[in-house]
Design a protein around this nucleic acid. Structure first.
Length: 266
DNA sequence: AGCCAGGCTAAAT
DNA sequence: ATTTAGCATGGC
């Protein structure tokens, strides 16, 4: 689903083949989502020329950012905190199935549903959302839906703000901290200076740029701002997927794995 | 069984 | 100003 459209994509000799449920007069919405007009080469050459970035680029050839619908992006990342990716997908599916609008899809796909609007979610109860397995995130998502539906948070205005102001606006929501705010700014609004530091990126930064030393979030932020250049958000994605694709023992989860690599305090 | 998850808030130093 | 629980739920 991309907003309210069902789409199936396939690689097709150097291009992308897209199939929809209904004839499309215009594909701009898909080009926007996939960001196909972005030329990667100036982005990649803007990265710092260190060995780590070269490895990340090598392991993620062709990786580019998506441009997701801001509300869906914000809601999805509110669901993401302290959850595994498979569980995040499950929560979002449940939200769509329970509260989203049914949308046309080819027969054989089963029924498909769009992500529900802020107004729709704002009218729900916390219990309704807890049934989608949101746990303690349920009141966060409900609060965000009410803020957007009620006009207290204008996402179209956020799109026009300077990065720092937009970041503060999102972090004004209960349940939205630095990481989630930066994800939404990067994937939903296209602020390329946003550099979300999640557990994986933190591990990469500490292990590869700081010899395994533990750094405080603000310290990492300072380093990132000076090091990754005008397309820092792109660099973040390359590092993130590089870490996730690497053997588990390299950027492994858990204290044991890190301790075995000689991770030191301070 | 127990640890950890694309974190954040609130309480305790 | 920084560190540390507690959180709701499920994968592995």
């Amino acid at each position: 689903m991309i907003s309210d459209r069902w789409v199936r994509l396939q690689q097709e000799n150097g291009g992308i083949l897209a199939e929809c449920a209904a004839p499309q007069g215009c594909w701009d919405w898909l080009r926007e989502y996939l960001q196909t007009a972005v030329d990667l080469s100036p982005v990649l050459s803007s990265f710092p020329a260190d060995k780590i970035m070269r490895q990340a680029i090598e392991s993620c050839r062709g990786l580019r950012l998506l441009r997701q619908e801001p509300w869906e992006c914000l809601a999805s990342f509110i669901c993401s905190s302290n959850k595994q990716i498979t569980q995040i997908k499950q929560m979002i599916s449940l939200i769509c199935e329970n509260f989203g609008e049914r949308t046309p899809a080819p027969s054989g796909c089963g029924p498909v549903f769009a992500f529900p609007s802020p107004d729709k979610l704002a009218r729900l109860s916390e219990t309704g959302l807890r049934r989608c397995k949101l746990g303690f995130r349920a009141p966060f998502l409900l609060g965000a839906a009410k803020a957007v539906a009620g006009g207290k948070l204008d996402l179209r205005a956020v799109a026009l703000m300077p990065y720092d102001e937009a970041r503060s606006a999102l972090m004004g929501l209960h349940g939205v901290g630095p990481k989630i705010a930066d994800c939404v700014l990067l994937f939903g609004f296209g602020f390329e200076e946003a550099f979300p530091v999640d557990v994986w990126v933190r591990r990469v930064l500490e292990k590869l740029y700081f010899q395994g030393e533990i750094k405080r979030p603000e310290e990492l932020r300072g380093f990132v701002r000076g090091h990754f250049g005008p397309h820092a958000g792109f660099a973040q994605q390359y590092l993130f997927h590089f870490a996730r694709k690497s053997p588990a023992e390299l950027f492994g989860k858990g204290k044991k794995g890190r301790a075995a690599l000689g991770r030191k305090k301070q």
